[in-house]
Design a protein around this nucleic acid. Structure first.
Lengths: 116, 116
DNA sequence: TATTGAGCTGGAGTGAACTTTAAGGAGTAT
DNA sequence: ATACTCCTTAAAGTTCACTCCAGCTCAATA
């Protein structure tokens, strides 16, 4: 798969894909004659990173995690605690969003009353 | 209430409070001799904006909404549709976060197996 | 063979949301 | 008086996450 294909499949710019690789949040992509040729594992890495970014994780955290992963089994405990930390943060974030959704629902129903 | 009090109460810098006011995402704060003296309504506006920001709404959207509000009752329908749009966006965001939390839970349990 | 098109790199530029700095004014404690 | 702490502003600086650009290689096509 070329960078163009991946870009279209996941709806992300080619520049961003290169940037992610440079930033080390996806491991170096397989190449043929210097040109990126995304294998299944590369594609999977892209998909995971996009999911993480959409959830709001900063590049820096993802990069630290990917670096540890590259170091192998020795880093499993450290990675586990990172994942647990991220989970906590995400749960808090989710709760904030839920709080605001409720607030919005309340506001919206007040507005609707006014309009009738 | 001085800017310092508000800053400490809501754990946000004084600079940020001034910036929010300048950006128009909180209406002009009541002043005494040119110095901000937050009334209940001002404090409430701050609290709402912080909640919106934590939920990830951009300054620009909040500012458009606050501007409409200043214009009064005429803009109610427009504001309602903004709120509804924001709610949709937040629900989508919440789902993305939930998706990633599930993925994390799965990963975490796999890690724990490995460590045992 | 010339040119078109897709890919490559390093580096500069952008927009959002602060954050810091500089320069000053007012009120109070020593 | 003067030092301290608080407040004010405009403007410059910072960080993050891209985004764009110049200048290059390489392969296919008119």
């Amino acid at each position: 798969m070329t960078i163009k294909d991946v870009s279209e499949k996941y709806n992300v710019s080619q520049a961003t894909l290169r940037y992610y690789e440079k930033a080390g949040i996806i491991p170096p992509v397989t190449r043929k004659n210097g040109i990126r040729d995304y294998q299944e594992k590369d594609e999977h890495a892209v998909e995971l990173v996009l999911c993480m970014r959409k959830a709001g994780l900063p590049i820096e955290s993802i990069s630290r995690y990917v670096a540890l992963k590259q170091e192998g089994e020795v880093t499993i405990k450290e990675r586990l605690s990172i994942l647990q930390g991220e989970r906590e943060a995400l749960i808090a974030k989710k709760e904030e969003i839920e709080g605001f959704i409720n607030r919005l629902n309340h506001k919206i129903s007040l507005f609707k009353e006014k309009i009738d």
